[in-house]
Structures are given as C-alpha cells and as structure tokens.
C-alpha cells in the first residue's frame, strides 16, 4: 500500500492540485454570489429591514429549484451555458461553472440560516440608536454571524470537494477523477484506497480549520 502510494505519488499530487484549484475557484466565486443571496433571503423576508414579499418569494423558489437538481444532472444540463461562459465544458475550467451553479444556492441557504441566528433584539437595539439599514447588515448581522458563517462555509467546502469528484465524469481531473479512472475503471484498488485516504485527510483538515476559526470568533 505504502509502496503503491510512493510509486503513484506524482499521480496523486497532480490530482490534489487539480482538486485544490477547482475547490478554491468555485468556493470563492460561489461565496461571492451565495453570501449576498443569503443576506437577501434574510432581509427581504416579512417584517425585516428590506421587506419585499415578491422578491423574497421568487428568490426562495429559484434557490429551491437549483438545490433540487442532482449535481451530475445539473452538470450535463448546463453544458451550453458553461460553454458560453468559459468556452469549454471539460477540464477544470468546464467544471468550475457547474460547481458554482451548484454551490452558490447551497451557500445562500447556509448563510441564511447563519444570519437568522442573529438575535432580533440586537437588530432592534441598533435601529433604536439610529443605524441605517446598511449599517445593520454590515456592522451587526454579518459581524455577529461570523462564527456561523465560518462553519457554514466549512460545510460548503466539504460538499464542494464531494462534488468535484463527480466532475471527474466530464474529465475535470482531480481526486475524484483519479478514483474513478484508476480505482473503478481499471480496478486498481490501491489507488482507489489511496484517494479515499487523501480525501478523508483533506476533509478532516478542512473541518478542523473551520471549527478552529469559528471557535476563535466565538471565543468572546
């Protein structure tokens, strides 16, 4: 097992780097889209600071629709869209678009639940002291929710790592692709096991890091 790992080190290393880039790009872009959507899901709901029933209802439904499509189907279904944006539907580039479309609504929901945890009384206190709605979003809600936001992003990252494995199907590369090609198609059990072990270590690491950050923020 160890021998096989050393022998195939380059193979693993390339896959790790590919996975890293897919996750990093998709996570950053999906957060840039998902976090504001999460904020909107909270502040436009009834009795909140930017109450707008129509907008809230539409956003809610759209996110639910996107969230109900399995990733593997979504990936294939949006190939034309992917091509129009990055010019290709395969490889890392081709994987990032469906990964973002898949993860952004997920992050929106995670951010929504993180922001809903912020005590309504604190928001009321800031309204009473004459804060603008923008100040309430940025200085109260996002600030108070930081520990939960960090845990939410941890969950999203781990989900994303899982999704990149499926992106192997469209030849995106990465650890999932490695496991499928070598482990499943060629029945090289040692490579499959090696990939799984690496994934386990990465997921553990991400979760521990997320917990650590949340704890630091919540230490208070």
């Amino acid at each position: 097992m160890l021998n096989s790992f050393v022998e195939n080190f380059d193979l693993y290393w390339v896959a790790i780097v590919e996975t890293w880039w897919m996750v990093a790009y998709s996570l950053v872009i999906a957060t840039i889209i998902g976090l504001p959507l999460g904020v909107l899901l909270v502040v436009t709901r009834p009795n909140h600071i930017y109450e707008n029933r129509l907008f809230y209802t539409i956003l809610n439904v759209v996110i639910n629709i996107l969230r109900s499509i399995p990733f593997i189907i979504l990936m294939v279904a949006i190939i034309p869209f992917t091509k129009s944006i990055v010019g290709t539907a395969i490889g890392i580039k081709g994987a990032i678009v469906p990964l973002v479309v898949y993860t952004a609504p997920y992050i929106a929901r995670l951010m929504e639940s993180a922001l809903l945890e912020v005590d309504a009384g604190i928001i009321e206190a800031f309204q009473a002291m004459g804060a603008t709605r923008r100040q309430i979003v940025f200085q109260v809600m996002l600030r108070e929710a930081r520990p939960s936001i960090s845990l939410g992003l941890t969950i999203a990252t781990i989900g994303l790592i899982g999704a990149t494995a499926m992106a192997g199907v469209i030849g995106a590369g990465g650890l999932g692709d490695l496991a499928i090609r070598y482990g499943y198609q060629r029945w090289q059990l040692d490579v499959m096991a090696g990939t799984v072990i690496i994934l386990v270590i990465i997921v553990q690491g991400v979760q521990s890091l997320g917990n650590f950050v949340a704890k630091r923020l919540r230490k208070q």
């Binding site: 005590d119 009384g121 604190i122 009321e124 206190a125 309204q127 009473a128 002291m129 004459g130 804060a131 603008t132 109260v140 600030r143 108070e144 930081r146 520990p147 923020l217 919540r218 208070q220």
Partner: peptide, 23 residues
C-alpha cells in the same frame, strides 16, 4: 430625520441586546 431623532433617544432592553462578538 427619524434616525437623527433616534440618536437622541437612548433605549435599553430586558435582554440587554449587546453585540456578543464585540468587547
């Protein structure tokens, strides 16, 4: 105008409503 007026009206609450993440 309301925000301006509110700055001259302090308010305290049963559950204090402090920012938990701030000193």
């Amino acid at each position: 105008e309301l925000r301006q007026a509110r700055r001259k009206i302090g308010m305290i609450f049963q559950h204090f409503n402090l920012l938990t993440s701030s000193t």
